[in-house]
Amino acid sequence: MNLIDKTIKYLGYFTAIVLAVLVLLVVYDAMARYLFSTGSVALQELEWHLFDIVILFAIAYTLREGAHVRVDIFYASFSQKTKLLINTISSLFFILPFSLLIIYIGIDFVSMSFIQNEASSNPGGLEHRFLVKSLMPLSFIFLLLQAIKDTKDDYMKWRAA
């Protein structure tokens, strides 16, 4: 297993842990609000930030595991060689350009947030919003690496078939 595979695998494990923490946090927050009529803006924002981590970091892991969205009703009936060709074309013309675009735009987005020391506009909200915003280009770097690895692997399998 190479470095990209290991990195994305552990990123998936990390995401699962964050998801478990998120569930506990939401349960605590709901109980505090409805049973004790207390709440925290920071806690609610933390829930959103953890949700961001789950969604953004799960993208590359989902691609690695082959659990991404596709039209399986057609895809399932294709030959292995056709499936490999579709995967390669999808990566080259959709995943790679889209990832590069998000990384390119995201770096400026995060830089501006960092320079402004962006924080929540809500009283009692979280500071350093640039930290969660930095996950966007980072997650697409992981997706880009996984897509490149998969494209290379699919091409080698296609040539061998």
Results as ranks from 00 to 15, higher is better:
110 V>T: 11
58 A>W: 06
126 L>T: 05
13 Y>C: 04
116 Q>V: 14
84 L>E: 03
43 L>M: 09
32 A>E: 11
76 A>L: 10
115 I>T: 11
124 G>V: 14
76 A>S: 14
14 F>Q: 02
18 V>E: 01
71 V>R: 07
96 L>R: 03
27 V>E: 03
59 I>H: 01
23 V>C: 06
20 A>P: 04
27 V>D: 02
49 H>I: 15
52 D>S: 08
18 V>K: 04
88 T>E: 05
109 F>W: 12
54 V>L: 10
28 Y>N: 08
22 L>H: 10
69 V>D: 01
128 H>C: 10
122 N>V: 07
13 Y>M: 03
99 S>A: 14
121 S>R: 14
96 L>T: 08
110 V>C: 03
114 F>C: 01
37 S>N: 12
87 N>C: 05
128 H>Q: 04
67 A>C: 05
71 V>W: 06
36 F>L: 13
102 I>A: 05
119 A>G: 13
101 L>Q: 01
82 T>L: 12
101 L>K: 13
40 S>K: 15
98 F>L: 14
118 E>N: 10
57 F>H: 04
97 P>I: 14
60 A>W: 12
107 I>T: 12
82 T>Y: 00
106 G>Y: 11
88 T>W: 11
91 S>W: 10
56 L>F: 07
82 T>D: 09
96 L>V: 13
17 I>N: 01
53 I>L: 09
22 L>V: 02
52 D>R: 07
102 I>H: 00
109 F>R: 05
43 L>F: 10
28 Y>D: 05
102 I>T: 03
104 Y>D: 02
114 F>S: 00
43 L>Q: 11
23 V>T: 08
52 D>L: 05
40 S>Q: 13
64 R>Q: 15
106 G>E: 08
